[in-house]
Computed example of a mutant assay.
Amino acid sequence: MRVTQGTFSFLPDLTDEQITAQVQYCLDNGWAVNIEYTDDPHPRNTYWDMWGQPMFDIPDAAGIMMELAACRKAHGHLYIRLSAFDSSHGWESVKLSFLVNRPVEEPGFRLRRSEGEGRNIRYTTDPYSTDRPEGSRYQG
């Protein structure tokens, strides 16, 4: 299963050249960029680990791509995403977010169905990856 999250989720994975172009677009618009990683790609998991600090005042995409390469070296077996934030209105709002790295194996999700009173049916998605302990979910 291929996890689809973010702006370019239904396209093939972007090349580093394409990622660099997107990063430069963000910087040209004055947006701060950050890099995050996780081993739990559930759509409601908003608590990804941040790689370093958000990168403000960087004029060239090369600096961010260097940080991305370091993150991939340390966490290349996990999901890594890049997000861009606009603070021009006085608060941070996400303008762009997309995956820039994914594990070789993506176990996917199971759909749980539970029936309530009447005709109420609830659905819950659980990632298969959480069947393993944190830190070992994508290691063979």
Rank of each mutant, 00 (worst) to 15 (best):
A21V: 11
F10V: 02
E115P: 01
V33M: 12
A32M: 08
M55V: 12
N34L: 13
G63N: 02
V33G: 10
Q139C: 04
G30L: 13
S88E: 13
D131C: 01
M65Y: 06
L82K: 00
S93P: 01
R137W: 04
R137G: 04
A32D: 08
N120A: 12
I19M: 09
Y138L: 13
E106F: 10
F10I: 03
E105N: 05
R119C: 15
D60W: 11
H77D: 07
Q53P: 00
D40G: 00
I58R: 03
Y47D: 13
W91S: 14
F10Q: 01
R110E: 15
D126I: 14
A61H: 09
R113G: 00
L68W: 04
T124R: 08
L99F: 06
D57H: 08
L82M: 04
C71N: 11
S9K: 07
G6S: 04
G140H: 06
M65D: 04
F56S: 00
Y123I: 02
F56T: 01
R2F: 13
E67P: 09
S97Q: 04
W51R: 03
R81A: 00
R112C: 13
A32F: 12
G52C: 05
T38W: 12
T4M: 08
K95M: 15
A74S: 07
D49G: 01
Q5H: 11
L68K: 00
G52E: 05
D13A: 11
F85W: 07
P43Q: 04
A21G: 02
T20H: 08
R102P: 08
Y79H: 00
N120H: 11
D39S: 08
W51H: 11
E115Q: 12
T20W: 05
F10G: 02
L96Y: 08
K95N: 12
Q5T: 12
Y37V: 11
G135M: 12
V104P: 01
P127Y: 09
S93G: 10
P107W: 09
A69S: 14
R110Q: 15
E92L: 15
Y79F: 13
T15P: 06
